[in-house]
Design a protein around this nucleic acid. Structure first.
Lengths: 223, 223
DNA sequence: ATTAAAATTCAACATCCGTTGAAATGTCAA
DNA sequence: TTGACATTTCAACGGATGTTGAATTTTAAT
């Protein structure tokens, strides 16, 4: 009676989302036209407006689709590492790992959709126009869970230092997933931006050391 | 006989650059129209095309103008810290400081132009479309100088680790200068994205600790 | 003052933009 | 089949886009 999710009839709608995802990732919101999306999705121009109301509606739908999945996966990773830890809770490394590993799990496969999505997030995160608003809207509740875990793992740290440390993590992470090819050119091919495993294995210790330096000031407390 | 840089007649051209800089920073290349630039600069629509050839020419002129200044200032800072250091060369902290401090010196003042420029760079750096190309074009020679200095300061490090460490630094830096307001919202005002001094004082030790963790593997070598 | 070049204005062009109303087609239960 | 509803197509709208050629004004040297 209600919307019965017509079994095989979602194809067109998903093709539009996939096409928009790839195009928005490369060119940003204003660099993409509805005609470009329709052409890539091999769909009539008017169909995207029909399904999503407007270009902005399509943009939001692209963002929301995988945000829900990613937030769920990340939350499970955090709760798992908290369950595995003792009474003192997980270490900084464990928490950072829970934050980063789900990205790797999705992006490691040849799933182009997720890679496009990460590029899009990278662009949004660094946009003065969209960054604050959209990142907060789609990821804030989850990030606050991670901030709470970090505060417990770093009980003597000032809150401001933890927030700035997370900000640096967020910047390093999004640039890495932006896939600009910059590191390939700068390193003359020694480092490869497509090699997500190499990036992940280095980002976790790099960021954890930064957290410790900034958030454990006087006496050395190791887990 | 040649271009004698007409003394006071550059006003219009600079007003166009300033207006374009501010608008490109907020909305990106495709989010800005020549009419928006002309209106903000209080100048006729056709004038920007006359002076810069095309919208893309205007974009490149905006990027180039301060890149030349910034590259020079940064190079001076690097050479000064190298001159002040002993035979072993400057420490990792000193090199990172030479890389970051010029940004603070320009952005600390109430110079809106530089702040807009940094926002623009942040957006470009994380854009799959422009990032690799443009950042390499405008900043590569200078960045390679810094990479060489870092290799000397970290003689036992694998090159790939240094490149990734710089990449993380670049990401943390550009997000911080993107001024998205995200950290203000996430921290409920505890950390302020406009406070460049606070950001700078934390970024140097954070990043230096990351470099050391990744690039000084076995035995501890401190300066 | 004359003159040539540079700077600025004006008006218009072809093209692309997002959106929409109406018509056509498809789906599926009764 | 009939009827309803959702989906898809088609054509077109008003408006915004970057660019340009011609006309006008300003500049600076002769």
């Amino acid at each position: 009676m209600a919307k019965t999710t017509p079994n095989r009839r979602v194809k067109r709608k998903d093709r539009i989302l996939d096409a928009a995802e790839a195009l928005f990732a490369k060119h940003g919101f204003d660099g993409v036209s509805m005609r470009m999306v329709a052409d890539r999705a091999k769909v009539d121009l008017a169909l995207a407006s029909y399904h999503f109301g407007s270009k902005r509606g399509l943009f939001d739908a692209v963002l929301l689709r995988r945000a829900e999945v990613l937030n769920k996966t990340r939350l499970e990773a955090l709760e798992k590492c908290q369950a595995d830890a003792g009474e003192d809770g997980p270490s900084v490394e464990d928490i950072i790992d829970a934050f980063l590993k789900p990205l790797l799990a999705h992006g490691y496969q040849e799933d182009e959709g997720w890679l496009h999505y990460f590029e899009l997030i990278a662009q949004i995160n660094n946009s003065p126009e969209w960054g604050g608003q959209l990142m907060t809207k789609y990821f804030d509740p989850l990030v606050r869970r991670f901030m709470d875990a970090l505060k417990k793992a770093l009980p003597d740290a000032e809150a401001e230092n933890i927030y700035w440390s997370y900000h640096f993590l967020s910047g390093a992470l999004t640039l890495t997933f932006a896939h600009t090819g910059r590191i390939d050119q700068l390193s003359d091919g020694v480092a490869k931006s497509e090699d997500m495993v190499s990036a992940y294995e280095r980002m976790v210790p790099f960021v954890a050391a930064g957290f410790r330096q900034l958030c454990v000031p006087k006496d050395r407390e190791n887990t």
